[in-house]
């Protein structure tokens, strides 16, 4: 391809002379950006927790927990949360070794992926065997289904994201070149795990 067509097709030849795209600048950006995004994401769940306490306090038509609603079994919820926490912890540990030992990081990431997929699997199982039907009404049932499915949707997306880190955790991969991006992703998963823990305490014990 001639120089002329390169110029017309895309950015001019920059890589050598574009310091703003060096990996260290990118790393500085990813951590702050992730913190802001985590704040935004937290607000999403704040709305659901608000719904929980608000509807519980109102208890309209005595239907917060109606006769068809029971607390779902705690041990399944506990397994889900434990798997989520494990997933987050493994990603954090993997991210720590991403720069120096990509193969170790990769192993941690694979284990995390396993935990995350299992977590989603148990979540699906729990939805299938809830013991109550949200169609029968009830504030609790609504919040439970809403909060848990939004959380699960985020976990699913996070697992795809984790897949990209697994694929890039190679000696020439991007995760190795920019461990900060993996660390930021680890922070995100820790936040999801935190939401999961709070949701577990709120939904199963209150």
């Amino acid at each position: 391809m001639s120089q002329q067509s390169q110029q017309s097709r895309g950015l001019p030849n920059l890589v050598a002379s574009a310091p703003e795209w060096s990996t260290d600048v990118d790393a500085r950006v990813s951590s702050v950006g992730m913190w802001i995004f985590m704040g935004a994401n937290a607000m999403l769940f704040v709305a659901f927790f608000f719904a929980f306490f608000y509807l519980r306090a109102l208890n309209n038509a005595d239907n917060w927990m109606n006769i068809w609603t029971v607390h779902p079994r705690r041990y399944i919820g506990g397994i889900i949360v434990l798997l989520l926490v494990a997933c987050a912890g493994l990603v954090v540990m993997g991210a720590r070794s991403a720069a120096k030992a990509p193969s170790t990081a990769r192993m941690f990431f694979w284990l995390a992926l396993l935990a995350g997929v299992l977590c989603c699997g148990f979540q699906v199982y729990e939805f299938k065997h809830l013991g109550f039907d949200p169609q029968m009404g009830g504030g609790y049932a609504s919040v439970f289904v809403g909060l848990k499915s939004v959380l699960m949707a985020e976990i699913v997306v996070a697992m795809i994201w984790l897949g990209t880190h697994i694929a890039q955790a190679t000696p020439i991969g991007d995760t190795t070149a920019r461990p900060a991006s993996a660390a930021a992703f680890g922070n995100f998963l820790v936040m999801l795990a935190g939401v999961g823990v709070v949701a577990y305490l709120v939904l199963y014990f209150i």
């Binding site: 038509a61 917060w64 109606n66 609504s142």
Partner: peptide, 12 residues
């Protein structure tokens, strides 16, 4: 058919 916003069924 959850009832987040239906007051007769526990929502508001």
């Amino acid at each position: 058919n959850t009832t987040f916003f239906i007051s007769s069924a526990g929502g508001s």
